[in-house]
Amino acid sequence: MRLGIDQVKKVAKLANLILTSGEEEKFSQQLSKILGYIEELNSVDTSNVEPTFNVIDKSNVLKRSF
């Protein structure tokens, strides 16, 4: 996945970051390279796998006195 200058601008706006044109160019190159590396995840079969968002299976922990 290549992140072009236009997309870098769009993401920067979403992230509330003001980038210089030099930074836009640099991040376009660096993030494209990183996303290229991350694409290797596409080769993993995850069709029957649940996502892990937290390693602890806890929800709605209520306050109590310690």
């Binding site: 991350i38 995840l41 596409n42 993993v44 995850t46 796998v49 649940e50 996502p51 892990t52 968002f53 390693v55």
Partner: peptide
Amino acid sequence: DYFIKAAKVRTLIK
């Protein structure tokens, strides 16, 4: 494609 996919592969690593 990115966040959920990564969270699934995280399960495999665990």
